[in-house]
């Protein structure tokens, strides 16, 4: 077997050539860094993706906080995890790097915030009196 896989780990997008050898091993070439090799192997046996989306924020200065999984999750479980993420909300303030859901996939992957959301104080608090 011989096939091309486009590595999606980083924007370089290397075209990785995977050739299976008679002894059951794979020969992998075309990756410009070691991460591409692991990606190609995962892609063959259990494809994984980082999931990025948003979580609702209560009492924040904006209605959503953007989030990511801190490690790639199994591709086949993306929609299942999206349902879970849509059902939750967090209270402001939120900081970049805050863990919003620990072990979201049962494999030790956490959901972390990627944006800072301030608490939406009473409107008067931010008001400057000009004279």
């Amino acid at each position: 077997m011989k096939g091309h896989i486009t590595c999606t780990v980083c924007p370089v997008g290397c075209k990785i050539l995977v050739v299976s050898k008679p002894n059951g091993e794979y020969e992998i070439s075309g990756n410009r860094c070691p991460r591409g090799k692991q990606y190609a192997i995962d892609e063959l046996f259990s494809p994984k993706r980082i999931l990025t989306t948003s979580v609702k924020v209560l009492h924040g200065d904006v209605p959503l906080v953007s989030v990511r999984t801190d490690a790639p999750i199994e591709k086949s479980r993306i929609f299942e995890l999206m349902e879970k993420i849509k059902s939750i909300s967090v209270e402001a303030p939120v900081n970049v790097g805050d863990v919003l859901v620990r072990n979201i996939d049962g494999m030790g992957t956490s959901l972390v915030a990627t944006r800072k959301v301030e608490k939406n104080g009473s409107p008067l608090e931010n008001c400057q009196i000009s004279g």
Binding site: V9, T52, R68, T114, R115, K116
Partner: peptide, 25 residues
């Protein structure tokens, strides 16, 4: 960057793969 919540930013500039908001931060 604020609205690009997907990841794929900063691999060269910060040697780390960030989302848009994280890069901005």
């Amino acid at each position: 960057l604020n609205q690009c919540i997907h990841h794929g930013f900063g691999l060269q500039f910060y040697r780390q793969e960030l989302t848009g908001p994280e890069f901005a931060y």
